[in-house]
Simulated assay, not measured.
Amino acid sequence: MTSFIDPLIAFVSTHPGLAYLTLFLAALLEAVPVVGAVIPGSTIIFALSALVPGGELKLEWVLIAAGAGALLGDGSAFWIGHRSQREILNAWPLSNYPSVVAQSEAFFNRWGALAVFFARFVPPIRAFVPVTAGALGMSRRMFYAVNIPAILLWAPAHVLPGVLAVSALHKYGGFAPHSGLAKHYWMLFVIGAAAIIALVVWIIHRRQGGGVVEPAAPARKNP
Results as ranks from 00 to 15, higher is better:
P53C: 08
G41C: 06
P53V: 02
V34H: 07
P40M: 10
V32Q: 01
L18H: 13
P40N: 10
A31I: 00
A10S: 14
V12T: 12
S42M: 11
A26I: 03
G36H: 04
T43P: 00
L23P: 05
P33M: 06
L21T: 13
L23M: 13
P40W: 03
I45M: 14
P33E: 07
T43Q: 06
V52D: 02
I45T: 14
L28D: 02
G55E: 06
L51G: 02
A50H: 11
G54R: 11
A37W: 00
V32L: 11
V12D: 12
L25R: 00
E56G: 00
A37T: 15
S42L: 09
I45D: 01
V52L: 05
A10F: 12
A37Y: 00
T22E: 11
G36D: 02
E30R: 02
A37F: 01
G17Q: 12
A27V: 04
L48E: 08
G17V: 08
T43L: 13
G36W: 01
V34K: 11
A31E: 08
L51Q: 02
S13A: 15
A27K: 03
L21C: 10
A31Y: 11
L29Q: 01
L48F: 09
H15N: 15
T22D: 09
F24M: 08
P53A: 06
S42C: 05
G36M: 03
T14C: 05
G36L: 02
P33D: 03
L21F: 14
S42W: 00
F11K: 00
L29S: 06
F24K: 03
A37L: 09
F24P: 09
I44V: 15
K58E: 14
L29C: 12
T14L: 13
S49R: 01
V35S: 07
T22H: 08
A19Q: 09
F11S: 12
L28P: 01
